[in-house]
Design a protein around this nucleic acid. Structure first.
Length: 293
DNA sequence: TTGTGTTTTATTGCCTCC
DNA sequence: GGAGGCAATAAAACACAA
């Protein structure tokens, strides 16, 4: 295997097969009060028939192959005996016992990284190969990372939901305010229209009367100067009558709007320039016509 | 019992660090 | 270049419904 790992044999040899094998064959259970590191030679009772990696499997892989053969080469008792014993009862992948897992979990809580010394010690304490301990920590770190990611995801999701709720509330508030502005604008418009209408309705009846009535006052508003000039207007109205009309018109003007309440445009519409309207009654320039029948 | 999904143990290959 | 970590993956063990 390119870049394949060469696994150290010294550590494995420390708790090597002879030890593990004897432990394995003992098939003891963990003492419930067993505390890691409490004894210089802790009971290897974690090991059961289910706690050992299959040596048959080990021989199939690159990693244990190097140590298994080397280790047995170094031992007085050859491995033929061992192979006979083991390979006729092939061990498959075994799960760790509950006690072993609890032990490892506690150790993981203390520190999720595994220094070589601790690995050796744990392996000894648990009656496992250091490699198994290392693998367990590796897998445990992977599980922890996955859990952590799930936690982070949940946290982010909760934050997102909270922010979204706030955002939705703000949107509703915004729509509500928008609606309120529309209503108020509408009201204001209506009020202005009513105001304008009332101004005209108060002024017009006084200025515009039926022809049968006397005197008839014709508003000159909107009439061009040339029209006025070209009219065949009787010139016999008296100054006295003229004055009385002016008085009537002035007194009938319903109100003088508060200048401060109106914009210039509104003012202009309510009080058109004297040159274009007779409301200001610059009488000399725009005489009020009257007929007496 | 069996099919299927999940969990656990172990391997592989790549990477970084010393 | 060796040691060890990690991601991806294989495969065994296990859980469980039908």
């Amino acid at each position: 295997m390119a870049g394949g790992r060469v696994y150290p044999s010294n550590n494995d040899t420390t708790d090597g097969v002879p030890n593990n094998l004897s432990v394995l064959l003992q098939n003891q259970r963990l003492h419930p009060l067993f505390i890691p590191g409490s004894s210089p030679s802790p009971s290897p009772s974690f090991l059961g028939t289910r706690s050992m990696v299959s040596f048959e499997d080990s021989l199939k892989t690159n990693r244990p192959k190097r140590s298994i053969f080397k280790m047995f080469d170094e031992q007085e008792n050859g491995y033929d005996e061992y192979l006979d014993e083991r390979f006729h009862q092939p061990e498959k992948k075994r799960r760790l016992t509950v006690d072993q897992i609890q032990f490892l979990e506690k150790s993981f809580e203390v520190d999720n990284k595994l220094e070589p010394e601790r690995k050796i010690q744990l392996a000894k304490d648990l009656g496992l190969q250091p490699r198994q301990v290392a693998i367990w920590f590796q897998n445990r770190r992977a599980r922890w990372k996955t859990k952590q990611l799930e936690k982070d995801y949940d946290t982010l999701l909760a934050k997102y939901n909270s922010l979204k709720a706030d955002y939705d509330d703000l949107l509703k508030e915004k729509d509500k305010l928008k609606e309120e502005v529309l209503q108020l604008t509408d009201k204001l418009q209506t009020k202005e229209n009513e105001q304008r209408n009332s101004e005209f309705s108060d002024v017009k009846p006084l200025l515009l009367q039926e022809p049968s009535q006397k005197p008839i006052v014709v508003s000159m508003a909107g009439r061009k100067q040339e029209d006025i000039d070209s009219d065949n207007i009787p010139q016999y109205y008296s100054d006295e009558f003229h004055s009385s009309l002016l008085e009537a018109a002035d007194s009938s003007y319903p109100f003088e709007p508060d200048q401060s309440d109106l914009s210039q445009d509104e003012e202009d519409s309510l009080h058109p320039p004297a040159s274009s309207s007779n409301f200001g009654f610059p009488v000399e320039d725009h005489p009020i016509w009257s007929w007496t029948y």
